[in-house]
Design a protein around this nucleic acid. Structure first.
Lengths: 166, 166
DNA sequence: GAGGAATTACTTGATATCAAGATACTTGAC
DNA sequence: GTCAAGTATCTTGATATCAAGTAATTCCTC
């Protein structure tokens, strides 16, 4: 039995024996699993009329607690995106009445993005489904694998953030 | 010490105690690490004038062995993308002289995408750097973590493919 | 064989993203 | 206080992607 990535590595080996393609066992599999996860998660968000990125903004506001307001820069940093991308997301969410832009009294360059009541209700409903779906997805892993994976990813993430890489 | 995802989970817990956000320890960390990896890998491809997806097509052709030719459908399946996306990638690669479209003698609906000599030379150069960079990236993991991760992702990937999910 | 179902590559229109730069504002060095 | 440097948001133009649909061809069932 072999998966897509195993076949790819085998092909490289037979074509190009001087190169070590083994990092792909980790990185290419991660990438493919991640693509699959993202597709499934975004199918759930679509039921609420949201793209993954829209949910991400609303969820970031919601979990920041009262008064459910952050600056665009904070949202941008949290999402690993560029400022232009965040601007267009906010345009869309504002048009849908899920957030509103207010002036920021502390810094006239900045804004405050407020979650509206409608936005809050929607994100809470979507988040409940989202967490349930994530839990479901992890059930294909054996409990000990899931636990080990949690530890490994935690260490990996820490080191990347320590290095300032993220 | 805590990373971005740990802070996010803590926020959810304090705002929304009835929900179990713990799957995010696995899924959100995977997503963020993956985003970081993709950014670094695509910076390497850019040195060769390629986007990640362009490299993916050229590499799939190269490792398929002589005569370095596949049908668009095979490339599409391998990449987890839609056929329209593959069409536009092939347009671009053809314009750059890295692949060429030839009629497929066995099926007049289909084509054969051939890697040109120029395409082959480029992908071999880019691939060498790519593999070196991937190996470098995995050095932040302890050897036992890397080994464990390889096993876990292999099992995960197998199960998803078994289910027909990928 | 004939005819309907499936497959193949492509087209179209919409959206998401980025890099680079513009504009307005704040901060800090002197 | 002044001004250069930095910061915050948005704009612009380019690209990548997708979903849905099209036309030509092949496959399958009878």
């Amino acid at each position: 039995m072999s998966d897509h990535v195993a076949r790819v590595v085998r092909q490289w080996k037979s074509e190009y024996s001087e190169v070590d393609a083994s990092p792909m066992y980790v990185l290419a599999r991660m990438m493919r699993i991640n693509m699959k996860i993202n597709k499934d998660l975004s199918a759930n968000f679509a039921k609420f009329g949201l793209a993954t990125g829209d949910f991400d903004v609303l969820a970031t506001l919601r979990r920041s607690g009262e008064p459910y307001a952050l600056r665009p820069t904070e949202l941008t940093k949290s999402s690993m995106l560029t400022s232009g991308t965040m601007t267009s997301r906010l345009d869309k969410l504002e048009k849908l009445g899920l957030v509103c832009r207010n002036p920021n009294p502390e810094d006239r360059r900045a804004l405050m993005i407020h979650l509206t009541d409608k936005g809050r209700a929607l994100v809470e409903e979507a988040a409940a489904k989202h967490f349930a779906l994530e839990a479901e997805m992890l059930k294909v892993l054996d409990p000990q694998d899931r636990e080990a994976l949690e530890g490994i990813l935690e260490r990996w993430s820490h080191r990347l953030e320590e290095e300032g890489a993220m």
